[in-house]
Each structure stands twice: as C-alpha cells, then as structure tokens.
Design a binder for these strands. Structure first.
Lengths: 330, 330
DNA sequence: CGACATGGTGGGACCGCTCCCGCGACGGCG
DNA sequence: CGCCGTCGCGGGAGCGGTCCCACCATGTCG
C-alpha cells in the first residue's frame, strides 16, 4: 500500500480512501492512485482490514454435513447468492446437529471474525444451541424452529403439504395416507401438519401416520405394508426419495401407480420426472430461500443490529406429472 | 491477550508462547497462563495471527456450483476431513468452470490468505486456469486433468468402468453399450476409456458410443433409441441418474431389465438400491478421496513447497444388485 | 474584511498477534 | 573459578490496513 502511495505521490491514507470510495478525494488524485494500483497489481490485504475493522466480508455457514438433496441444494444456492453480494462463505459443517457441535462451529466462525452467521438447522435438537448464541451478531436461520428462531427463512412446508394433499383429494380420493420424514425435523413436522389440515378441512378421515427418515429404504419398508392394504388409494410422501422406495415396494406387490394408487412426493429432485411413473411432487424454491437469506443477513450487517422480527416464507409449487389419477372405481 | 498476561503476571509474549505450545515455558507459568485464559474466556484472534504470519488455518476450495451427486458428495466429505484436521473451509463456488471464473475464485481466496487451495475441476475447460495458478501455494486438484495437474487426487474412473464392463461380459453378454457423460468431463472420459479397454481386452466388438450429460433425461433420450435395437443386451451408463432415465425408457418400450437387458450404473447414489430393478453400480469412495486430498495438502503446507509429483488414485468398488443377468437365449 | 465552514490531504496511533533480540539465572566444563 | 551455552522470560518492532485528528487552501457569509 505504501508502494502504491509512493508511486502515486500521495499518502497511504489517500490510497485507503480511494480503495474505500470515500467522497473526499479529488478526481485527479483518484485517477493517479487507480493507475498506481493497476501498475503494481496491488491487491488489498483483507486480513489486515479485518483486523482493524473487527469484521470481514465473510459469512459463516453452519450446516449439517449431509448430501441430502434439500440441505445440499440450499447450501449451494446460498453460496452463490452470498458470492454475488461480494461475500465469501466459510462453511462449518457439523456431523450432528446437537448443541455442542453447533456451539463449536459457531465459535470457530466467531474466531474468524465473520460478518454474519447462517445456520441451516432443520432439526429440533439444534434449538438449545441457537438460543444460546451471542446476541450481537447478525444471524439468519434457515429451516429453523418456526416457534423460536428470530430471523428465519423457510420453505412453507405446511402450504406445500396442503397442496399435495388437496391435489390428491381433488382427484377423487376419499383420503390420503402420509409417510413422513424423521419426527425431529421441522420440515417433516410442517409437512405432517399441512397434510392433517388439508384432510380436516376436507372432512376426510385421517389415516394413521407412517414415519420414514427421508431415505428410499424407509419408503420401501412402509410401502411393503401399504401395498397390502386394499383401502389405500392415495399416498403423500415427505420427499421424493421415500416415494421412490414406495414405488418399488408397490410394483413388487403388483400394485399399479397411478391406476390403483396415486402418489405425490416432495422436493422435485431432478430425477423425479423419470421415476416409473413420473412423479407428481412439490417443488421448493431453494434459490428464493437463498436470496432471501442473504438479503436479510445483509440488512442486519448494514444496520449493525440483529433484526429479531424479520421472517420470510417461500411458497413451494406443485409439479404435476403422471403419478396421480382418480381412484379405481369398485 | 494483554489482559491475560496481566492476570497471569507474565508478558504478552509468554501468553503467545503458551498458545503456540512453545517448548521454552516452565510448567508453573504455563498453568498460570492457562488458568487466566480460562478465567477470562479469552479466545485468540485468528485474524491478527493471519496478518502477521501471512497465512491462516483456512483452506480455499474452488468447486463447481452444482448439486450433482459426485461433486456435492466430494465437497461435503472434504469439508469434514479438513475440519477434522483443524482447518476451516472457504468455499468459492463457480457457476461455470471457465478460465476466468476459476481465476477470480482463486484470487478471492488468495486475498483471504488461505493456507492452501483445493480445486475440484472435473472438466477440461478448467485446464488453462489451473496452469496459470501461482506456483508457491499448496494446491491439490481433485478430479482434474490426469495429464496435466500436479498434485492430483482422483477416483480411478478407468478401473471402475472396466469393472462394470467386465462384470457384464462375465455374465455372458457378447458386448456392452455405453451411455457416457459430457465429453469435456474427465470423469466421463475415463469411464469411456475403461469401457473401451475392457471391450478390447475381451475381444468384444465395440458398439457406437452414446453421449449423455449426467442427467436422467439424457438416459431416457438414449434409452428410447436403444430400446428399439434388438441386439442390445447390456448397457453401462456413466452414472446412476442416466441409468434411471434409461430404465424408464426401456420399461416404456416393454423391454424388461434384467431379463432382456442388463444395466450397470456408476456412483451408487443412495437411491440406486430402490430403482426397478435395484441397480448394479460402481461405488467411488468419496471419503477416501477427501482424506487423501487433505493429507496431500497438509503435507505441502507443512513442507512449505508444492509437491508436483504426488498423486493418489482411489479405486472404486462394484456393488452388485439385480440389474444384471445373462443375456436372453435366442 | 475577518470568522468560519468545507473539501482535500497527510501524520500518526492502533487493531491483536508473532518474531527478533536481549537479559538474567543457572549449570557444565576446562 | 571464570566462561559460555541453555533456558525462561520480557521488550519492542512491525504485519497492512483504518480511524481520528490536524492541517491548509478555498469559498461564504454577516
């Protein structure tokens, strides 16, 4: 920086001003400095800046270390959105979302003087750790506890599940079964609720809830059971992978989809259109979640204070394919 | 740090020594300092350290911004491995792997004074940028150009493809068709080569190569064509998603798998066991790739010099399920 | 016409840490 | 017994920036 100052014939201070686009620099000197910077190929040291300002253009992300389609898509979408706003992303992935590991990850980020924090915390066990976070750092929770988290961005699970259930009901089915995700995931809980509400509103009987764990295996396992129940004509699964396992189980039992049984999934994984049959499903808009998160976080960073009230809920859309049909007439 | 020093009754320098585990500190003072640190809840400022040492405990990762199963799994596995070695991970994802965006991402990382760089660069277009990288920074390329990259960790695509092809040949098929990934991906190229080599070694005739793009859609498209060709009895696809699309196309045409046509995929996505039929596929060990990368990178960081010769190739394993059977006798 | 605001610039101090050097105490050796 | 090497520790400089303050030249106003 001193070199640049010397070459431009100004003080280091003026160079700093040019770098930070301070108004009080005359045009001629600004140009001289710019020229010197270009000639020397000078790049400011972000570390030094971070030291003196006490903050940096880095966002820390705490995310579960999983390749599950939802979280993974969320993460890449967020990375991109953050970068587009000029922020680097520091990922602290956590093997399990318990209080300790989250707290550890947060502390690691704080040591690095991140400007803000994003926690992708879809499970209830993350709650206590989040409650105990430092108050004075910008924080956005993605997919967190709707009851608790302060600044929260989330997919509207309830609305998505409602849409799925109502779609099946509208096709003529008297009721809809549901294979859920793991009970401690908010996503799963929201989808269960949307399903229940839709059933209630339609005055349909509510079948027992079957529990899965997002995996195709759990869909298969539950499918083995459902396949033997003649009265089952419509099933809504908590995600597409469960639906895949379910499809497999049904086909093994000779039950045809959608002629005998209709199915709706959730997530719209890129492969869903090539299941047999192509799967009708609910598509959450991960990009919208990501941009909303960045937006909210940046607002906090600029204002300097965490905003405890801001919320953003992204409505998913139903993607209709071939796995839904009217129930068989008997 | 000064506060700690005061409380412990030593100089800031001694505190620094304790922190860095310098040998020349007596046990009593070490304990005093430790106690003071604990009492004050002091956490060293990594930014300040980075400024003076010129490096940090952060690894920069340049990765394509995709949710594709391979790259995404690689990334999360790497994050975990790096963290286990005490390094934070800065992800600079790139929309497209062209020279400019890679160079930009690298510069962003360099500005942050990362200790080392990992580039996940599975496509040929990344080549020029990699060649122009600064020489003096520890660098590991994952899935890069086998011909060029210096320190390279990669899945042995050729061996995996060989195994898949040989498995089909061993089942009695006279030859094996292949739907490849995009031509500019090294992964795809390696799989094509393994397939060709296996065919040659077995003295089997080599059918024309069909090109896909990793997507189920491309598998479906090619499948529409293959389904009409009576002589096709065995197909090896470049990944599982292509296989899924292929399965769908074949079933639409009434061709049965594995009775009429056998299929082997690549990647072993978690859902592969629930395709119809469960898919025989090749499983790359992403964790092994990740640990090897971290190992190689750390070795460079410690030695201070890039190692231009180190390479690591991870052998994949064949996972046998139900999509392979002997060819139909005519 | 003098006082005072205003814009452009420079000179330090300082952020929190590590590194270099220097100093006293102690012990082994000739 | 004196010399020197080693150990344990402290003082100060400096990493590369930003921030506060002081300075000087203008322009503006009563």
């Amino acid at each position: 920086m001193m070199d640049v100052a010397r070459l431009a014939g100004v003080s280091h201070q003026t160079v700093s001003r040019v770098l930070n686009e301070h108004p009080n620099v005359s045009e001629p000197t600004r140009l001289k400095v710019r020229a010197a910077i270009a000639e020397l190929g000078y790049r400011p040291n972000r570390t030094a800046r971070a030291l003196v300002t006490g903050t940096s253009k880095v966002i820390g992300v705490v995310a579960p270390n999983t390749a599950l389609y939802g979280p993974a898509s969320m993460l890449t979408a967020f990375e991109q959105a953050a970068q587009d706003s000029g922020f680097a992303v520091n990922v602290g992935s956590v093997r399990s979302l318990n209080e300790r590991s989250i707290a550890d990850a947060v502390e690691r980020h704080l040591d690095q003087r991140v400007a803000g924090l994003v926690v992708i915390a879809p499970v209830a066990s993350a709650g206590p750790a989040l409650a105990r976070l430092p108050e004075d750092i910008p924080l956005v929770t993605i997919d967190g506890d709707p009851e608790r988290a302060s600044t929260l961005v989330t997919v509207d699970q309830v609305a998505g599940a409602r849409a799925a259930t109502e779609h099946l009901l509208a096709a003529g089915h008297s009721t809809v079964w549901h294979i859920s995700g793991p009970a401690d995931w908010f996503d799963a809980a929201g989808r269960v609720r949307g399903w229940q509400e839709a059933l209630q509103d339609a005055g349909a009987e509510q079948p027992p809830l079957l529990t899965g764990d997002w995996s195709a295996e759990s869909g298969y396992r539950n499918g083995k059971l459902l396949a033997r129940l003649d009265e089952v004509t419509a099933i809504f699964t908590a995600n597409d992978h469960i639906a895949l396992g379910l499809l497999r189980a049904l086909s093994e039992h000779g039950r045809r989809v959608p002629e005998e049984i209709s199915i709706v999934g959730f997530d719209d994984v890129p492969q869903a259109a090539y299941y047999s049959p192509p799967l009708t499903t609910v598509r959450p808009d991960f990009d919208a979640v990501a941009t909303a998160s960045v937006e909210l976080l940046l607002a906090q960073i600029e204002s300097g204070a965490p905003d405890l009230t801001a919320r953003r809920t992204i409505a998913p859309t139903l993607v209709s394919r071939d796995s839904v049909a009217p129930p068989p007439s008997r």
